[in-house]
Design a protein around this nucleic acid. Structure first.
Lengths: 167, 167
DNA sequence: TATTGTTATACTCTATAACTATA
DNA sequence: TATAGTTATAGAGTATAACAATA
């Protein structure tokens, strides 16, 4: 447990982000375990629902390394939730399909996930929740200071953080 | 890069949290590298500033395993930023002190960290920024749905997530 | 007997490299 | 020659267990 005051915590953005991310991940992992799946398993399985994508394509969408994809699929397959079928157009590639049980798990998982999100965001009044989510999207989204492509060019007010000023 | 629409991303709380946490951590690591320290190194070093805490005490405050604390201190010590001195009251324990160079690094690191936070939050108008931080504190803080102690008793809509096996 | 810090070790997670079978 | 998927392996990061010195 943290012994700091709310004011100190509020000023520690890294802590706020790490903690919220980690705690939500823990809740998700625990909640999804009830249907026998991991968050990553759900991620892959849900994206495989159309039944037309290859391992590589799903790996790209899910931002997974192809070797990580192999392990994930091994688990899903041995759990009877997904299967690999040869691509009709490319004999090197394998299409990922969900089994009937897999589709059912995805469905139940969605309900569980929605419930967790509702629980978490439920502590915020409607208006604040909206502002909160908008802010997150703005930070993380395209051109935002926390997007992959770096802080973009719309935030050059501060120099690229050089070692100068010492307080 | 994510190909989903802002609306889809806005509905994916796990993604928003993971992404913001990870992106900020990356920025922090890069920024702090300019003064030759890691985020964890800064965390330990700043908490050692008073010069009175033992390894174990700092490990507890910083939420680090004591063995992780050892390697972290090994690095800080060989970089000349910290030193271990025997405790005057307990000959088993070692007090962690910052060297003069270490204190200087902490000082410069603080400025860098403030700059990164200002950059990131700078894209949010004053009022939204305030709502955003309040919301985060509420989620992560005591009794919040993302606090360590679990969702507390104010969110009992869903059962306490029984344990079972994952895939 | 319990605790501080250390060492050695194991485990998880993920990525790199090499291999196969195709293309 | 290049690509999809697999395998083996290595690396980072962290945790567990055993140990020495001390309480």
């Amino acid at each position: 447990m943290d012994t700091r005051s709310d004011d100190e915590i509020r000023a520690d953005l890294s802590y706020l982000f790490d903690k919220s991310s980690q705690a939500l991940a823990a809740r998700m992992t625990a909640a999804l375990a009830e249907v026998g799946i991991t968050p990553r398993g759900y991620c892959v399985l849900s994206k495989a629902l159309p039944g037309e994508l290859t391992q590589g394509e799903i790996a790209e969408i899910a931002l997974l390394d192809k070797t990580t994809m192999v392990v994930t699929l091994d688990h899903l397959e041995s759990a009877g939730l997904a299967r690999r079928v040869p691509s009709p157009t490319d004999r090197r590639a394998r299409i990922v399909q969900t089994t009937e049980a897999g589709a059912e798990v995805v469905d139940r998982a969605r309900t569980i996930i929605d419930g967790v999100y509702a629980d978490v965001l439920g502590v915020l009044p409607e208006h604040e929740r909206s502002v909160f989510l908008d802010a997150l999207v703005r930070l993380v989204g395209r051109g935002g200071p926390l997007s992959d492509l770096g802080p973009a060019e719309n935030v050059p007010r501060r120099k690229p953080v050089r070692s100068s000023r010492a307080s």
